[in-house]
C-alpha cells in the first residue's frame, strides 16, 4: 500500500475531529445566543415606554408611570465620584507595582491583595462601606459614602488594566532614559505614562461600566428607593444627599412595588444594560483604534 494513502482508520479520525470541532463550536454558540435572545426580548418588551421622555422625566404615580431621571442622574453622580477617587489611586498603585516594586514579599502581598479585592463579594463591600464610611467616618448614607464604596470595589479594574499597559512599554525605553540621567519619575512621566495612556483610559471606561451596574454596594450606603429631584437639572444632588440609582431602581420596581406595568422595569433594564454595553463597546473600539496607531 502506498504510504500516504488514506486509510479507513485515518478517515474515521478525521470525522471524529470534525465532530469535536462542531461540538466545541456549538458550546461557544450556546454561550453567545442567550445574550442576543435576551437583549432582543427585553428590547421588545420595553419598546412601549422607551423614549427620551422616559429618560428625562421623574417617576409618577408611585413609580407606576413616568420616567427614570432621578435614578439616571444619581448613577452619573455615583459613577463620576467613584472614578475621581479610584482613578488616581489605581493608576499610582499600578505605577508602584510595575515601576518601583522589587521582587519581594511586599510586592507579592500587594498583588495578592489586588486579586482578593477583586474577589470580595459585592455584598461584603456593602458591609464595609456601611461600617467604614457611613458609620465610622460619619458620612451617613450619602452619595459620598456610596461612591467611596464603589471606588474601593472597582480599584482592581483600574490597577490591572493600567499595570498591563505599563508593562507593554518596552524596557529599552526606560534604560535609554536612565542612561541620559533622567530620574525614575522623569522617565515615567515623560516616556512611560504618555505611551500607556490608552490602557489607563480603557481601565477608566471599564471602571465606569462596572460602577454603573453595581447594586449591592450602594444599597446600604447611599441609594434610596425614591427621591424627588428637579427634572433636567444636572446639579440636583448634593454629595451628602442620598440618591436614586438605575440599578437600585430596577431592583425596587421589579420586586418592591406591586402593580408596575411590565414595560417600565424592562425599559429601565434596557437603559441600564444599554449604558453599560455602550460604554464597553466604546472601550473596545478605543482599544482597536489605538492598536492601529502604535508609536513604535
Amino acid at each position: 500500500m502506498h504510504p500516504f494513502q488514506e486509510t479507513i482508520h485515518s478517515k474515521s479520525r478525521q470525522r471524529k475531529e470534525t465532530y469535536i470541532k462542531g461540538l466545541f463550536c456549538c458550546m461557544t454558540i450556546a454561550i453567545i445566543i442567550p445574550l442576543i435572545l435576551i437583549i432582543g426580548y427585553m428590547l421588545h418588551e420595553a419598546s412601549p415606554v422607551l423614549s427620551a421622555d422616559f429618560l428625562l422625566k421623574a417617576p409618577e404615580r408611585g413609580m407606576k408611570a413616568g420616567g427614570i431621571w432621578p435614578a439616571l442622574l444619581g448613577t452619573i453622580y455615583l459613577v463620576m465620584m467613584s472614578l475621581i477617587v479610584a482613578a488616581p489611586i489605581g493608576v499610582m498603585a499600578a505605577i508602584y507595582l510595575n515601576e518601583y516594586a522589587g521582587d519581594n514579599w511586599l510586592t507579592r502581598t500587594v498583588n495578592l491583595a489586588v486579586i482578593n479585592l477583586a474577589g470580595v463579594p459585592s455584598i461584603v463591600h456593602a458591609l464595609f462601606g456601611l461600617g467604614a464610611f457611613v458609620l465610622f467616618a460619619g458620612m451617613g448614607k450619602s452619595i459620598l459614602a456610596a461612591s467611596l464604596t464603589l471606588a474601593v470595589m472597582t480599584l482592581p479594574v483600574i490597577i490591572t488594566s493600567t499595570k498591563e499597559s505599563l508593562a507593554a512599554v518596552p524596557m529599552a525605553f526606560r534604560e535609554a532614559c536612565w542612561n541620559v540621567g533622567a530620574t525614575k519619575w522623569q522617565t515615567i512621566r515623560r516616556v512611560v505614562i504618555p505611551n500607556s495612556i490608552s490602557g489607563m483610559l480603557t481601565g477608566f471606561i471599564l471602571e465606569v461600566s462596572r460602577a454603573a451596574g453595581e447594586t449591592a454596594p450602594i444599597m446600604f450606603t447611599g441609594a434610596v428607593f425614591y427621591k424627588a429631584v428637579e427634572e433636567g437639572n444636572l446639579f440636583a444632588y448634593n454629595l451628602t444627599d442620598q440618591c436614586m440609582a438605575l440599578s437600585m431602581h430596577l431592583f425596587t420596581i421589579s420586586t418592591q412595588v406591586p402593580g408596575v406595568p411590565e414595560a417600565i422595569p424592562f425599559a429601565t433594564a434596557i437603559v441600564l444594560l444599554g449604558t453599560v454595553l455602550v460604554i464597553n463597546a466604546f472601550s473596545i473600539a478605543f482599544r482597536i483604534y489605538l492598536r492601529s496607531r502604535k508609536r513604535w
Binding site: A172, N179, V180, G181, N195, R295
Partner: peptide, 18 residues
C-alpha cells in the same frame, strides 16, 4: 543622575524614544 549626565551611553540596539 549627575554622574549619568557625564557619561553618554549608546546601547546595542537603536532606541528612538517614542
Amino acid at each position: 543622575h549627575a554622574l549619568r549626565r557625564r557619561v553618554g551611553m549608546v546601547a546595542p540596539l537603536p532606541v528612538g524614544l517614542p
